[in-house]
């Protein structure tokens, strides 16, 4: 193979059909309240971890819905499990349990 001094850029596009949706389905089955998220961002605003480091639980939830789980393990471990997000969620999602289920699913589908 020849060296060109550049490589083919990886696509940033979410390719929904190619993604693995098992993790999402597992979380939905075990914490059904996850489905009613409206991406308001209240959880991220109050997040103890997110105020100090690059961690966005709202965005992570969206990426799980799209089956984008590549960086998930590293990301989800930033959560301190303090539960403040549960207090602010306007739709009453059990966000703390959502995170626990995500962690469980990561182990399961590793």
């Amino acid at each position: 193979m020849k060296e060109f001094g550049f490589s083919i850029t990886k696509d940033r596009q979410i390719d929904y059909d190619q993604n693995d949706h098992r993790l999402l389905n597992f979380v939905l089955e075990n914490e059904p309240s996850f489905i009613v998220c409206i991406s308001c961002g209240g959880c991220t605003a109050t997040c103890s971890a997110g105020n100090l480091i690059d961690f966005n639980i709202r965005k992570l939830n969206i990426l799980i819905r799209r089956g984008e789980t590549e960086d998930l393990e590293r990301e989800i471990n930033k959560c301190m499990l303090c539960g403040k997000c549960m207090l602010v969620c306007p739709r009453g999602i059990n966000t703390r349990n959502v995170i626990l289920k995500i962690k469980e699913a990561i182990q399961k589908f590793r």
């Binding site: 940033r12 596009q13 979410i14 390719d15 929904y16 059909d17 991406s39 709202r58 965005k59 969206i62 990426l63 799209r66 984008e68």
Partner: peptide, 15 residues
């Protein structure tokens, strides 16, 4: 179809 998934800030395609 293509759109941006504006809540994750990434372009998205699906069939």
């Amino acid at each position: 179809i293509k759109s941006e998934d504006t809540l994750s800030g990434r372009p998205l395609k699906m069939n």
